[in-house]
């Protein structure tokens, strides 16, 4: 059972990385970035393509850089020019970007399931009598470090302070001379980096490598963001863990849950999302709506 717990924690940590990127972008630029999933796939793709040439760690840096640059390009070229458009138009535009990027990436992945060359491969260690893939453990450790670093930046750096101020009240922040454009740019860049890191673990053992199905896996990070609260950084972390745990336990108990139908693990994150939204429309940690009279 400890394996299910670690699988859940590990998946949760990786979903949290993806959800965090989604939330940061939303806070900084009020864009629901549905193209976020394709940043993950782009990162994985570049890592997979370059790991023989650059070695695994070099390829990881290349993958992260690629995801970050892609995020930046989308922000500069597509989002910025229409940033005053209604939030719905911006969101739908990102869905378009997602479809285009994914189609091209999946076409490039083509006939292969691409290995990313993780040096830990299918290695496993025994924890409390269960075999846990090393990939799962490295994922938790790296995610904790990356998220910790992000929280420090978010809390103490000038960018973090400025971003929180801007998320609080854009007009006032702008009047105070904060550069909203730069805040948004840095947020997209960070989202890209987080996506690139998540990619390494979503394609590691026990998954065989980068396959077109990664798009469906990444999709489960979106309910994580909504469960936690779309505008809440801690919410993204908690939401990620909830989705990861739910999925791991639903899969582990799937034979017991069979009366609910097959494939319950895949549906569970969405069910939890609906339940949370019905009870707390703003998500678990989202800002409560206030009615101004």
């Amino acid at each position: 059972m400890s394996e299910t717990l670690i699988t859940g924690l590990s998946l949760g940590a990786v979903y949290a990385l993806v959800a965090l990127g989604f939330v940061v972008v939303f806070k900084a630029s009020e864009v629901l970035n549905f193209a976020h999933g394709s940043f993950v796939i782009a990162g994985a793709y570049v890592t997979a393509r370059t790991h023989e040439l650059l070695g695994f760690y070099g390829a990881v840096l290349a993958g992260i850089a690629a995801a970050a640059v892609l995020a930046l390009v989308v922000e500069r070229l597509l989002v910025r020019p229409i940033r005053d458009a209604p939030v719905i138009s911006l969101a739908i535009m990102t869905i378009g970007v997602e479809v285009i990027l994914n189609t091209e990436l999946i076409r490039r992945i083509g006939v292969d399931i691409m290995p990313l060359g993780q040096p830990w491969g299918a290695d496993a260690v025994s924890i409390l009598g269960s075999n846990v893939p090393v990939n799962r453990i490295v994922a938790v450790i790296v995610a904790v470090i990356v998220i910790g670093a992000f929280l420090l930046v978010f809390r103490f750096s000038p960018w973090g302070v400025a971003m929180r101020a801007a998320a609080e009240d854009r007009e006032t922040a702008e009047l105070l001379g904060l550069n909203l454009g730069r805040i948004s740019m840095v947020a997209w860049l960070i989202a890209g980096i987080l996506a690139g890191v998540a990619a390494i673990f979503l394609t590691g053992a026990p998954t065989p490598g980068l396959a077109p199905t990664l798009a469906a896996v990444v999709l489960r990070a979106f309910p994580a963001a909504l469960i936690g609260g779309l505008d809440s950084v801690p919410g993204a972390l908690v939401g990620g863990l909830i989705v990861g745990m739910t999925e791991a336990y639903a899969v582990a108990f799937q034979s017991e849950l069979e009366f609910l139908g097959r494939g319950i693990g895949e549906v569970m994150p969405f069910l939890v999302m609906i339940i949370v939204l019905v009870i707390r429309p703003q998500g678990l940690f989202g800002r409560k709506e206030t009615a101004r009279v």
Binding site: F34, L226, D231, F270, G283, G286, E289
Partner: peptide
């Protein structure tokens, strides 16, 4: 953040996530 935008965004995000 403007509450209307947040509310609309949550609704939109939920709808899209479910639809996809």
């Amino acid at each position: 953040m403007n509450n209307t935008i947040l509310r609309k965004s949550i609704a939109l995000a939920a709808a899209v996530t479910l639809a996809v």
